[in-house]
């Protein structure tokens, strides 16, 4: 409400209002609009052993169910990525519990492979190699730093929105954002330790 009065209006407000009225097709339009970003975001946060499509579906179904609770204090996109953030954390915890129950050893985080490019990096275009390498280095950052970068680049949220979502001070967030870039730059400048496409060794919470 405040955003729409004093700030930029939410571009999704028409569709959101229609969806709140029970219009499934309006919500379909929202799904089409944000599916790609949510998918990218969820895949960047989850181990490839977790079925990301299930989590994505869970995100949108939760959004549909919780839509009456959406007060319009933030943009719909921010709210949706807040749900995605929590669903990823739930999925990761569930996955860890399952692993513990099955008595599996701790295995390194295995990031999602690039879509449709197969497992052999030799035939990949340069852009895909670059993207894969960046994602691998992103996986080497601390959880807090990576979270900020993912919300900024994948979800395309701005700083005040990320600050509200993560409930951290804006100045702290900006410093963390800066540190994340510095560390990423450092990792990128380091000599390559493992070939492109190899899993990054990071566990996620």
């Amino acid at each position: 409400m405040l955003l729409s009065l004093f700030g930029q209006p939410d571009p999704d407000s028409t569709l959101v209002n229609a969806a709140r009225g029970g219009d499934v097709r309006a919500f379909d339009a929202l799904v089409h609009r944000y599916h790609g970003r949510v998918r990218q975001f969820v895949r960047s946060r989850l181990d490839s052993a977790i079925d990301s499509d299930d989590v994505i579906q869970d995100v949108f179904v939760s959004a549909w169910k919780e839509l009456p609770g959406f007060r319009g204090r933030s943009r719909f996109k921010t709210w949706l990525f807040g749900i995605a953030l929590h669903r990823c954390a739930d999925a990761w915890r569930k996955h860890q519990r399952l692993r513990a129950l099955l008595g599996e050893m701790e295995v390194p985080f295995d990031s999602w492979p690039e879509d449709t490019w197969g497992d052999n990096p030799e035939g990949w275009p340069a852009a895909v190699i670059e993207r894969t390498e960046l994602r691998r280095h992103l996986g080497r950052l601390s959880e807090a730093e990576r979270q900020v970068l993912e919300l900024y680049y994948y979800a395309e949220l701005n700083m005040p929105e990320i600050s509200a979502l993560l409930e951290i001070n804006l100045s702290t967030l900006k410093y963390r954002f800066y540190q994340a870039h510095r560390n990423l730059r450092r990792h990128l400048e380091e000599p390559v330790e493992s070939p492109v496409g190899a899993p990054a060794s990071r566990a996620r919470k």
């Binding site: 599916h35 998918r39 990218q40 579906q57 879509d115 960046l134």
Partner: peptide, 19 residues
């Protein structure tokens, strides 16, 4: 680099249908 990957339309549309 962190844009939604191109070439994933088929998988994406299947996922959208599922949702």
């Amino acid at each position: 680099a962190l844009q939604p990957a191109p070439g994933s339309d088929r998988e994406a549309s299947a996922s959208i249908q599922q949702v």
